[in-house]
């Protein structure tokens, strides 16, 4: 745990000791963004939702897999992780809430609205996890 034990450890060496949470989280974010782009491309009509739901389910699975892999990590700076996670989830939760309001305000069709809210919810967990992990991994 001591800083002195590895004063010259490189960023990549420290990253290799932990699961690739940032990479998987970014992948999940990419899947979620792809789903939203697919839906928005067909406005004002509602396209077949199956591809978008598939992308969203894959994103959700990646976020869950990330959480499980991280929960098994040893010597991880959990205290700092949760400090950063708490504040970033507050910030990104606020942003997600603002976007949900805009979607609801514009009378988006119910199924599309449900999809967008689910996407925002995944993003509001995924982004704080990426940021909190990225800070805590160098403190572990």
């Amino acid at each position: 745990m001591s800083q002195d034990a590895r004063p010259t450890a490189s960023a990549s060496a420290q990253e290799q000791r932990l699961p690739p949470v940032a990479f998987v989280g970014t992948l999940a974010l990419g899947l979620a963004i792809a789903g939203v782009t697919y839906i928005t491309a067909s406005l004002p009509k509602e396209p077949p939702l199956a591809p978008a739901i598939g992308l969203l389910a894959a994103a959700a699975a990646a976020v869950i897999a990330n959480a499980v892999a991280l929960a098994r990590a040893r010597n991880f700076a959990w205290r700092l992780f949760f400090i950063v996670f708490r504040w970033t989830i507050l910030a990104y939760g606020l942003i997600a809430g603002l976007l949900m309001f805009v979607f609801i305000y514009n009378d988006m069709p119910a199924r599309m609205l449900a999809f967008q809210i689910a996407t925002l919810a995944i993003g509001a967990v995924d982004i704080p996890m990426i940021l909190a992990f990225s800070v805590a991994k160098y403190q572990s």
Binding site: Q3, D4, P7, T8, A9, S10, A11, Q14, A22, F23, G25, T26, L29, L80, V84, I127, I130, L131, F133, S134, V135, K137, Y138, Q139
Partner: peptide, 24 residues
């Protein structure tokens, strides 16, 4: 969100340590 901002935050937290790793 995947590279830029995490690097930014990690730098700030690293610099808060009593003995930050400047190579990192």
């Amino acid at each position: 969100l995947g590279i830029n901002e995490p690097a930014n935050l990690a730098v700030l937290f690293e610099l808060r340590k009593p003995e930050p790793n400047l190579e990192l």
